[in-house]
Amino acid sequence: MSGNGNAAATAEENSPKMRVIRVGTRKSQLARIQTDSVVATLKASYPGLQFEIIAMSTTGDKILDTALSKIGEKSLFTKELEHALEKNEVDLVVHSLKDLPTVLPPGFTIGAICKRENPHDAVVFHPKFVGKTLETLPEKSVVGTSSLRRAAQLQRKFPHLEFRSIRGNLNTRLRKLDEQQEFSAIILATAGLQRMGWHNRVGQILHPEECMYAVGQGALGVEVRAKDQDILDLVGVLHDPETLLRCIAERAFLRHLEGGCSVPVAVHTAMKDGQLYLTGGVWSLDGSDSIQETMQATIHVPAQHEDGPEDDPQLVGITARNIPRGPQLAAQNLGISLANLLLSKGAKNILDVARQLNDAH
């Protein structure tokens, strides 16, 4: 009898209710805020589980004197976190989706994509230029951005401005803007500013005609071990179906173009009346040469937790077992079709030249 009692006690200790789920994140304040929001949602869904947040620095956090596009290494903000995932030191990792490459290392998958916040870019102005827009900034004003995508589009749109690289986390960039006289304004992701509670610093939100956004911008991705079915089931509740389908289309477009950090590629997606609209573009580094096109596809946005595919093969690095396969494939095909259209119009040449120029500098 006593033996059975011990077995029952052991089973209770090993039951999922007692389990601590370890969540990996970057150390920056924004990353911690984003991770806290994901953990809060998981806690609400699984009140019996405990969650421990483990923060670590990544290569991208450490190399702050070089433009991201020049470092010449993929997975700048993800490699150390993936290493911890691989060694079973954490069970899942919360990322900004735009930091996750469209091809993940073997053994990993994006197990959830959370509801997207505003994906557009924002302009934050130096205190002396508050009330201005990019259009009304004085001639030769210097605007800071760490992104080739932003610089290429904005140089084309605002030729009277000069664009220079600015690195560091959000706090560091804002301090550089406010305390030094080098920059009249800087460009940042609206979602990051909003998550930090800095709505009052948003001086201008850039519309798609001015600057399309990065693939996955404004959404959070939760990376897990691809074979860890328990954790895949656990994080599945975080999937937002519309965000998922938009981001599958965007990531398929980028992957098929073979774009990345070192080339200016941008997108804009919208879901309306059962249609998914995808606009994508590529630019030369100075913005003088560009190709942009829009395509659409009829896609039914499923309700969360309709029964999805059981075999769960990944699409552009994403596993969404609780979302039907048909809409996911339709979104992926839309991204591939748009990429093929741009490639047929000469996108590869623009991107190759951009890559060579970026590598040469």
Results as ranks from 00 to 15, higher is better:
I318S: 10
N171L: 13
S75D: 06
Q296K: 12
L193G: 13
G346D: 04
V235K: 01
L85V: 10
D307F: 15
F125T: 03
Q50P: 15
I54H: 05
K140I: 07
G107V: 10
T190M: 03
L148T: 09
G335C: 08
I187V: 09
N88R: 11
Q332W: 13
I54E: 14
L357K: 10
D311Y: 07
P105H: 12
L334C: 13
R116M: 03
M212Q: 03
V237W: 03
P105S: 10
L232P: 04
G48L: 13
E210D: 09
V93S: 05
Q275P: 08
Q314L: 12
A67G: 09
T133P: 06
C247E: 04
L351R: 06
L232V: 11
I113S: 03
D178C: 13
M295Y: 15
C261K: 01
E223K: 01
V130M: 09
T190I: 15
E135Q: 14
E86W: 04
R150S: 05
L329I: 09
P127H: 04
R167I: 08
R149N: 02
G218I: 01
N322T: 08
Q275K: 12
S69K: 14
D311V: 12
V265H: 01
M196W: 05
T298W: 12
I323T: 08
Q296L: 13
R156S: 13
M271Q: 08
S141G: 11
G48D: 13
G259P: 01
P106S: 13
K62V: 12
L278F: 10
K272V: 15
E135T: 10
L234T: 06
L245Y: 15
V215A: 09
G24Y: 00
K43V: 15
R116D: 04
R195F: 05
L100I: 14
I318E: 05
H300P: 10
E209L: 05
T41H: 12
F108C: 09
V237L: 12
A330P: 09
L238F: 01
A266G: 05
K176P: 01
K62C: 06
N88L: 12
R355K: 05
S96L: 01
K62F: 07
K128R: 08
A151N: 12
D352H: 15
T35G: 10
I21P: 05
S141M: 13
T190R: 07
V124N: 03
P241Y: 02
K98Y: 01
I318Q: 02
Q229P: 07
E82M: 02
I33A: 14
K27I: 09
I166N: 08
K272F: 13
L342I: 06
T136I: 14
D286Q: 11
K79H: 12
H126W: 05
G60I: 01
D307A: 10
L148V: 11
L238T: 03
Q204E: 09
G197F: 07
Y277P: 02
G346S: 03
D273A: 02
P313I: 15
L276Q: 04
P208Y: 14
D240I: 06
G107W: 15
L278M: 06
L334G: 15
A303F: 15
A44M: 04
E250I: 01
E162L: 13
N169K: 11
E310W: 03
L343T: 09
L329W: 05
L104C: 09
R175A: 11
Q180I: 03
K115W: 06
Q314A: 04
V142S: 10
E179P: 06
L92G: 06
K62D: 15
V143W: 03
I21M: 13
T35S: 09
G287S: 08
V222I: 15
L161I: 09
Q314C: 12
E52I: 13
G346T: 08
L234G: 04
Q181I: 07
A152I: 11
I63Q: 05
G197E: 05
T243H: 11
L329R: 15
S288R: 03
M295Q: 05
L234N: 14
M56G: 06
L232I: 14
G221W: 02
Q153Y: 12
E223S: 03
S57H: 04
G48T: 12
P264T: 14
G107L: 09
L161Q: 12
R156A: 13
G281R: 08
H300M: 02
E310N: 00
T269N: 06
V282A: 09
R116Y: 04
T102D: 05
V282P: 01
R116T: 04
L245G: 05
A67M: 00
D230A: 05
L42V: 07
E258D: 15
Q229I: 04
S147N: 00
G144K: 08
K128D: 08
L97S: 05
E209A: 03
L220W: 05
S288Y: 06
T294P: 15
I318T: 06
V23W: 00
F253K: 00
I299W: 05
T133Y: 08
K79E: 10
G326V: 10
L30P: 00
V94W: 00
H300A: 02
P302I: 02
I166H: 09
V23R: 01
G144P: 02
P241W: 14
F108H: 01
L338K: 06
A40G: 12
I54V: 09
T136S: 14
A320K: 04
K70Y: 11
N118K: 09
Q194A: 13
P101K: 00
D312C: 14
G203V: 14
T269Q: 02
R175M: 13
Q29P: 10
L177G: 01
T109I: 07
P327L: 05
K227D: 14
D65P: 09
N340F: 07
N322H: 09
G335Y: 00
W283K: 02
E250C: 02
R26L: 01
D233W: 03
D36P: 00
V267L: 11
H305S: 06
K98M: 02
G111P: 02
D65Q: 08
A152R: 11
T109F: 04
L49W: 07
A31E: 00
I63G: 11
L285F: 13
Q34K: 00
I299S: 07
C247G: 05
H199W: 10
A31S: 10
A214T: 07
W283L: 05
Q194K: 13
A252N: 02
L193R: 02
Q34R: 00
V20L: 08
A55T: 08
P313D: 02
F51T: 13
L276A: 04
I33V: 08
G107D: 11
G168W: 03
K79M: 09
V20A: 09
N340T: 10
A214N: 06
L97Y: 00
D289R: 09
A112F: 00
I110E: 04
S45K: 15
D233E: 11
I33F: 06
G144N: 02
S284N: 10
E210R: 13
K345F: 15
H239A: 11
T41S: 12
V215N: 00
L76Q: 10
T243V: 01
H126I: 15
R246N: 07
A189F: 02
K70T: 09
L177Q: 05
H95M: 06
Q296C: 02
T190Q: 15
V93F: 04
H83D: 12
I71G: 09
T25L: 00
L97G: 01
L68F: 05
K74C: 05
V143P: 03
I33H: 07
P105D: 05
D121I: 02
S28W: 00
A339E: 02
T172F: 10
A249R: 01
S28C: 04
G192M: 05
R149E: 02
I323C: 11
P119D: 04
S37F: 11
G197P: 03
F77I: 04
N88P: 07
F163W: 13
T279P: 05
E223G: 07
T243Q: 15
V222D: 02
E293Q: 15
K157S: 11
L177S: 03
T279A: 12
V94K: 03
H300C: 13
M212K: 00
L177A: 05
G326S: 11
E210H: 01
V353D: 15
